[in-house]
Design a protein around this nucleic acid. Structure first.
Lengths: 342, 342
DNA sequence: AGCAACTATACAAACGTTTGTACAGCGGTC
DNA sequence: GACCGCTGTACAAACGTTTGTATAGTTGCT
């Protein structure tokens, strides 16, 4: 049973196809009786315009891609959720592309999305793919980058002030008296990782600590990676640190797990600070002190900007959200006695 | 700068457009020299076939929709991840649709996806939308349901044995000596909720308990919902239960939080059993005893079946994965003394 | 009565492919 | 030397819309 086309409707209504098109789109005045007949025919046949034909004609697909390292990462999931929320308001479909933080897959999706001629792409890169690669891949499409900035790329960017966020939390742990801190950073190729590191170092300097003196290892922003990275930190030479600055919450969770298996009490023996404020952060034991980024808002903003840009309207080159310190219980003043609440 | 079309390439190579098409698709033998000239022209112009035109002609969009209550729910995120993984192997795009478990949005997306003529839809319903609604909405599309079964619908279904899973975990807590148990169920309209409830009751009967005698409230499968639901359970008449059967992990987390604020020790004073084995389950304090569903596999299978069905090949009506008991620390034998491991 | 200015509709081109059909050239066969 | 079959290519139709242009019918003005 073939689905009816505009021809079938026109035939049944006894009018031309252009007339049908015009009544359906309201593109031109059509007499009331003709409209009625057309609508009746549409109803009778259960006609629905063929979106594919429409897309060809309009040279628009009413879909945009979202390239993201991993939807299972709660932070990315929240960004994705915000993106979708905004797109839905305009009946635009979201093509979800998870790269697993693999450069090959990121390139694959960039290419696939371009070949498919989606109307635009939101990039949340997780691979540090160089700007040159990305911008040729994205060439011709409207693109906006979110969260993770790719230096040297000219597209609009939506993010939050990672440097300031990192500084805030580092200052917080230092203000609690910690002098022996260690850093568990993100993938060095990533801009956010670099920014957060810079923020930590700023805070250290302010407190009179030599940044190059603090142990620092690079993680991969994932739970298991955080777990193994924290091992090298804990097994490293010198005294064990009293506080850990971890560049994202997922790795902080890994660190927490490692501490648990080693029997290191958090925060009594070791304070741990995270970044992102994913939903899990609040339900951990102990609840994680971290930095909140408005992930959903960022997703929404990115989608909004992309949509505006697709429409040809001018958009901001840079949209910056504030990052906010969230103090919970995983960071404690040094030497402070544990207080059992029950 | 207009993107080149097949005409431009044909012109530059001095051949007809059909020749270009045939060399690009290998649809017909073309002499080596002609091929070379065409490829050179393609290269020179940076030609890329217009997917929209191709889709119109082929009457395929090479995209499928995934309707899901909420990507931020880790279980659904994992299913989505599996779906995407499978689709990627065939260069099929995934349109992500989050309904927020709202029937209106579920209907909206079903309609949008049909209007957009995606090649198929994977439904993970979260609203208990009646079969009649859904099947008309999905009419004409290839559809497969995953995880959440909609009774009375004829489409292929991929799920896991919720009833057995629930029975397993209920038997586990009962085997630990608990007699005063309470049930925190899922949304009554949902099939999984009903199945899990049935499984719990089976186990209760086996152990000689009267199912109607155990307190039972309905939750919404979400964290906050679990939290408030557990309140009514804890504040209910009669003795406080010693064990809670919670129909999914998210609600179990909510229950855990509520217990923490009330100062109820888990599992010492109250055992809690979950369902789904989301990644968070393992990192909670205490780690959650729960039932594992192979979410990623289910997603993969659903995508595979959908793809097969789109190709017109026969597919199984029912694909059932096993559910598996995961014993961790949130359920403890009754009366057993707490043993501090450190 | 004739013409201008509408209004409502029809016609046909265009969007960029894929693919069935036609045909030109050519070597081989009787 | 006419015919057959084969290879390589061109032509044109079709997919289902949207939209610019043309036209028929009506009204109103002089």
């Amino acid at each position: 049973m073939r689905r009816p086309t505009i021809h079938d409707v026109a035939h049944e209504a006894g009018v031309s196809i252009s007339t049908v098109s015009h009544v359906l789109n309201g593109t031109r005045p059509i007499s009331a009786e003709t409209q009625a007949r057309v609508r009746a025919a549409v109803e009778a046949q259960g006609y629905e315009p063929n979106a594919r034909a429409r897309q060809l004609k309009a040279d628009r697909s009413f879909a945009v891609g979202l390239v993201v390292p991993d939807v299972m990462n709660p932070f990315f999931a929240e960004v994705a959720s915000g993106v979708e929320e905004e797109l839905r308001r305009q009946d635009v479909l979201l093509a979800l592309c998870s790269t697993g933080a693999q450069a090959g897959r990121e390139a694959y999706y960039a290419q696939l999305l371009r070949h498919r001629r989606v109307d635009g792409v939101i990039f949340l890169s997780g691979t540090g793919l160089p700007a040159a690669e990305l911008s040729t891949l994205a060439e011709g499409e409207s693109v906006v980058f979110v969260d993770e900035r790719v230096p040297g790329v000219e597209a609009p960017f939506v993010g939050s002030d990672n440097r300031r966020g990192a500084r805030l939390i580092a200052e917080h742990v230092l203000s609690q008296g910690h002098r022996k801190v260690a850093i568990l950073g993100g993938p060095p190729a990533l801009w956010t990782a670099e920014q957060r590191l810079a923020g930590y170092r700023e805070a250290l300097l302010t407190r009179g600590l030599e940044p190059d003196g603090v142990p620092c290892v690079a993680g991969d922003y994932e739970r298991e990676g955080g777990r193994v990275a924290v091992r090298t930190l804990l097994d490293g030479p010198g005294d064990r640190p009293t506080a850990l600055l971890v560049a994202n919450d997922l790795m902080a969770i890994g660190a927490l797990q490692e501490c648990r298996t080693r029997g290191i009490a958090v925060p009594d023996e070791l304070s741990i600070a995270g970044y992102d404020d994913i939903p899990e952060a609040a339900i951990l034991t102990p609840p994680l002190t971290t930095v909140r980024q408005p992930a959903r808002e960022m997703g929404r903003a990115a989608a909004h900007i992309l949509l505006e840009r697709i429409e040809g309207r001018p958009v901001p080159r840079l949209t910056d959200f504030p990052a906010e310190l969230v103090v919970r219980e995983s960071v404690r003043a040094i030497g402070e006695e544990e207080v059992r609440s029950v």
